[in-house]
Amino acid sequence: MPHWLDLMLQSLGPLLWAGLVFTVPLTLLSFAFGLSLGFLTALARLYGPPPLAGLARFYVWIIRGTPLLVQLFVIFYGLPSVGILLDAFPAALIGFTLNVGAYSSEIVRAVIASIPKGQWEASYSIGMSWSQALRRTVLPQAARTAVPPLSNTFISLVKDTSLAAAVTVPELFQAAQRIVAVTYEPLIIYIEAALIYLALSSVLSALQDRLEKRLARSSGLSEATA
């Protein structure tokens, strides 16, 4: 067996373990929380009273205008000096959640705004309240348009979680760094880590494809049924 393959196989276990225990949960949790935050932020910007809409705009401005790595450092290394001491994983989770929240809020805002006014009026005209119209008419249509851009955010997030290594979360990339520290084989190990990220995002892309097809089928808008 060639040396590089042997090395890859030996390190595969620890890398996958780190991915399974840290990268995947960090991704899933921060996406779920971030999307919820993004949804609320979008609603605040679209329909909230001016102070709330202003706050939402301020939040998006700060998060989008500063590097994610710097945000993570502020949360993990900076906040302890004002008495807020977080473990590495929760600190990273907060950082990624805030990040996903800001980016996804822009997507959610755009897709909600893209639903024609007439759809709201049709909903009101049959007696629906604002929240019923949002839930029953607007969001189902907006969700369909939102899948590709939100999938994009999701796939970026999987890769961005490697930044958590810098705030001591022992996720996939940090596991790779540790293995390199003892084997002195950066090329092989980092390529292996890259391949695992590639596999993860490929699985997600495939899921996105299936979700898009399913949503299209259930709305009668796909070419297949038109």
Binding site: P116, G118, Q119, E121, A122, S123, T137, P140, Q141, R144, S218, S219, G220, L221
Partner: peptide, 8 residues
């Protein structure tokens, strides 16, 4: 005028 059926 333009129906406004719920397309979904």
């Amino acid at each position: 005028q333009n129906f406004q059926l719920f397309p979904h």
